[in-house]
Nucleic acid binder design. Sequence first.
DNA 1: CTTGAAAAAGGAAGTTC
DNA 2: GAACTTCCTTTTTCAAG
Lengths: 149, 149
Amino acid sequence: MPDEIDRILIVALMEDSRLSLKALAGLSGLSSPSVAERLRRLEERGILTGYTVNVDPKAFGYMLQAIVRVRPLPGQMRAIERHIQSIPEFTECDKVTGEDCFVARLSVRSMEQLDAILDKLSDRAETNTSIVKASPVKRRLPPLSIVRS
Amino acid sequence: MPDEIDRILIVALMEDSRLSLKALAGLSGLSSPSVAERLRRLEERGILTGYTVNVDPKAFGYMLQAIVRVRPLPGQMRAIERHIQSIPEFTECDKVTGEDCFVARLSVRSMEQLDAILDKLSDRAETNTSIVKASPVKRRLPPLSIVRS
DNA sequence: CTTGAAAAAGGAAGTTC
DNA sequence: GAACTTCCTTTTTCAAG
């Protein structure tokens, strides 16, 4: 279980993953070699799973985002799953309970491209598509309080 | 518009945002001061919008993820939007076209917590909740080819 | 955008608690 | 086992071209 210092490091990195070890040391009250060791262990334990950047998709011409619920026809579930994985415009996909099997997010350059991608699914699944108009909550972490067990 | 070198830098940072300027210089064929200046400008232009980490929510006791479609009752849309924003367990929320007004992602520690959070919405909205069983596509970027205009 | 020097940060080793 | 200090190497930053 991560402790309070781990939590401080993770919250700080969530806001700026390029912070130097020295800066993280200052925030946490440790020395920088200790911070390096903490991060190594958090990665090893699978708690910190990656360091990444947020990019504005519009800068690369992706003017539309859509959320697509996908309900594969009988026997098509695995095929649909692989199909979605193979189309890079699907930027996120979850397998869920309920009538829909998958909820996926799609970034496309145009309505025409959206239509083309959904068309290819139509043989093997029913889809229900919603265009994203705004994103009132951008991706964030839930409260990372330490759980005592 | 970002050029080919910007694209190389962004794709590299997407995979590892802690790469040193020197490493980025090697990948892009520039010197490290030039890379630093490029990144500064990409941030300034709103193309690179943040450096962050991926964290396993389970490490902090968030054992369940759900996707909730929310359909506010008449006149309740703004109130619901603010309500969702104010609950930190909602880790993502999009405003979409179609019957549902919002599609939100929720990280919770237990079924009881999920129920409690959804209960608070029930006065002012209809909700439709799906539990996430797996995530066949983890958050990724669409293809970042350069668009010629 | 590059080079080159000064300043800062990172990494390895050995020590202490 | 975890963290600290020291010393040395690498990286970043800044000035100048």
